[in-house]
Design a protein around this nucleic acid. Structure first.
Lengths: 232, 232
DNA sequence: GTTCGCGACGAACACTGTTCGTGGACGGAA
DNA sequence: TTCCGTCCACGAACAGTGTTCGTCGCGAAC
């Protein structure tokens, strides 16, 4: 007698791309940290051991997911303006593509991204910087700085977006959810500070947590590029 | 009969500060990720459940450790120059203080730092920016940008430092360790790229992984501050 | 001297990433 | 067609993880 109802009709649909795509779906649903190997395997209706045929470990899987998220980024064309406009557009697209998939940008902080789409996009960043007349050594370090900006901004934007989703969630749209909100919780800490000890924080309090969206991000990007140009 | 050799002579030395200090020691030894509640408890010669009297969860503990690491940062004085020199010195000290304790800066990425020492240091950052004549709204966003720079640079520096320690480790100072090294592994990826597809990366290859130390960090900081001044 | 509360902590729960071994399915060779 | 060999899906297990609960001993208050 067979040990159980072993029905395996079309289970051969496993591949590296299928695993990475499933992992991206799971990250979208439950976030970066909660996207465990077991949950990804469950998404594929298999066991966790099956994933290790196509992926060395969780880190490599998440790097692949991060790279897949960057596949949506289209390189700006000549119609998008001069090198600076194109660079800022490209960076904005990178941040948007990453922030669209929860906090997958964490993978870029845990390890340097070296996937094919990361390389494709970074090649274009470096090329645009050179077109802009930036010194070669400055190009290399600028790409590093811009990479840090992309990861940080994508994480910030993802956190801000998740907060809005939690507030909009009718299941817990109570005072508790409002109190646990992202900017709200931070602002509450600032509001409770002693103005004699932290005069500047208290004075700037409305500005510190305001404008968590695109204005903040594009301002930061402008600062960095202006700073680059100042290195002449 | 007592249920076992329950010898408890001087076990009453537990407190929140003792827990956080022990956690900092563990982070120094094994790193941020491997610093588990069980290891911290073992450092205090107790069980993991004992920690939860003084700390809500691992996240809060790591935020407290991050804040403790910033306690070493001394605020620059008038003898250190004008506002810009003081600001850059302060930021450098923050990066150095965090990078001295492995990758504890990860705690600043997982959540916005709001501990007492973070507040103390951020108050001074905001104050110096205002002294420099930066617009109030720009001050708020600049502090955010500088915070991202501090966390990213501390992580980068910690990774670079760990790599050097692993190479210097006589136990595995073989070709394997050299091949698995940080900058070396990245450079190897770049070296294997097709020059027709990634011409800029290949052309700038020696510059991309070079200068991983202080020069890179201070250059980035100069870019940011120059960019701030360009906002008028 | 007795009671009472605080807190240290053993045990357990529900997970996690990863490895091993089995065994079935499929390709090509005889 | 039969056989063999390779591949790989997957059950089971290992060694951990964060966190919670209940107990129980100790110090202090009454």
């Amino acid at each position: 007698m067979p040990p159980g109802p072993r029905t395996r009709p079309a289970k051969t649909a496993l591949s590296r791309e299928a695993v990475v795509a499933a992992a991206l779906r799971v990250v979208d649903e439950v976030g970066y940290e909660a996207a465990s190997m077991r949950r990804v395997a469950a998404e594929l209706e298999t066991g966790p051991a099956s994933l290790y045929v196509y992926v060395a470990d969780r880190r490599e899987l998440m790097e692949a997911v991060h790279d897949l998220a960057l596949a949506d980024v289209a390189l700006p064309t000549g119609a998008d303006g001069d090198w600076r406009a194109r660079l800022e557009l490209l960076i904005d697209r990178m941040v948007a593509a990453l922030a669209a998939h929860a906090d997958i940008a964490m993978a870029a902080i845990a390890g340097v991204p070296l996937g094919p789409h990361s390389l494709r996009v970074n090649e274009e960043v470096l090329r645009l910087l050179r077109v802009g007349g930036i010194d070669d050594a400055a190009c290399a370090w600028a790409a590093d700085l811009l990479g840090q900006y992309v990861a940080s901004s994508a994480l910030e934007q993802a956190a801000w977006r998740r907060e809005q989703r939690e507030i909009a969630d009718p299941g817990r749209a109570t005072t508790e959810a409002m109190g646990a909100a992202f900017a709200g919780r931070i602002d509450a800490v600032y509001a409770a500070l002693d103005p004699a000890e932290f005069p500047t924080i208290v004075a700037l309090r409305p500005l510190l947590t305001g404008g968590g969206g695109d204005a903040r991000a594009s301002w930061k990007l402008r600062v960095i590029v202006d700073g680059l140009l100042a290195q002449g």
